Simulated assay, not measured.
Amino acid sequence: MSTFRRNNVQGGFSLIELVIVIVILGILAATALPRFLDVTDEAKIASMEGVAGGFATGVSLVRAQWESEARPQDAVGNVVIYDTVQIYLTTGDTANGIAAGYPLATSANVGLPIDATRCLEVWEAIFQNPSPASTDIGGVQDNGYYVATAADPNGIQACAYYQVNSLVKSGGGYTAPSGTDVGNNFTYQPQTGQVLTNVN
């Protein structure tokens, strides 16, 4: 009768094998991390471009409804009821390059140039369930939009909608941008109905 003896020898990784594995993981992390950062930035840009596209579509729908209703006016100027909201529209002035029928405000039609309050009114009228937006840089949320006015490349006053999470943070809040060359944003020019995106 023979007896078998088992050796209680435990196998494991040597120190050299562990170092090699750690080095390989470090190399993978170093190459993958920039890709993940790029994906985050690309997602922010795609989100902003999607909102800008929806806004441009809304502007076109408002104008199309105004045209289909035979260009209604009230005592003040061009107006349309869009999704139960009364929206005042631009009045055409070919000498100054202003096309008729683009959203301008919901509170009162006081003409151009447009201010940040009326830009916010247009934002809320165009979208049925808009992202949070504010004209107060201290009151904006990380996932919202900061609304201001900015001059376009031709010096024409336009609405500027800044993606808040792309702006510079200082202290506990965000710094108000000085132009459209800061943060991801899009502009709306009520004179022509044009919506332009700016990725920074």
Rank of each mutant, 00 (worst) to 15 (best):
A158E: 10
V168M: 12
S131L: 15
Y162V: 01
T135W: 00
T187F: 09
Q157T: 15
D93C: 03
I98T: 14
R118I: 00
T187C: 03
I126Q: 06
I98H: 05
S131Q: 14
A150N: 13
Y102E: 06
T197V: 15
P130G: 06
Q191Y: 11
G173L: 10
N198Y: 14
Y162W: 14
S131P: 10
S134P: 10
T149P: 07
Y161Q: 02
G101V: 05
W123N: 01
T175L: 14
A116Q: 03
A105M: 01
A133D: 08
A148K: 12
E121D: 04
C159L: 06
A125I: 08
Q163R: 13
A133K: 12
G179M: 09
S178E: 11
Q191N: 15
I114S: 05
G183Y: 13
A105K: 02
T175W: 01
P190H: 12
I126L: 08
N165L: 05
S107D: 04
Q194T: 15
Y102C: 09
S131F: 15
F127V: 06
S134M: 10
N143R: 12
D93H: 05
N165T: 01
V122G: 02
Q191M: 12
Q191P: 09
A176W: 08
K169R: 15
V110N: 10
L104V: 13
A100V: 02
D136I: 05
P130D: 03
G139F: 04
G101R: 01
S166T: 15
G173E: 05
I137R: 06
C119G: 05
G193D: 11
P113G: 05
G111Y: 01
G183A: 11
G139Y: 03
V110D: 11
T192W: 11
Q189V: 15
N184F: 15
I156C: 00
T192L: 09
T91F: 00
V182E: 13
G155H: 05
V147S: 07
Q128R: 13
G155E: 02
A133L: 10
Y161L: 03
V122F: 01
N143V: 07
A100T: 04
A100K: 02
T106G: 12
D181V: 10
A133I: 10
P153A: 08
K169M: 07
G139S: 14
Y174V: 02
A150L: 06
N129L: 13
A100E: 14
S107C: 01
V164R: 08
A99C: 01
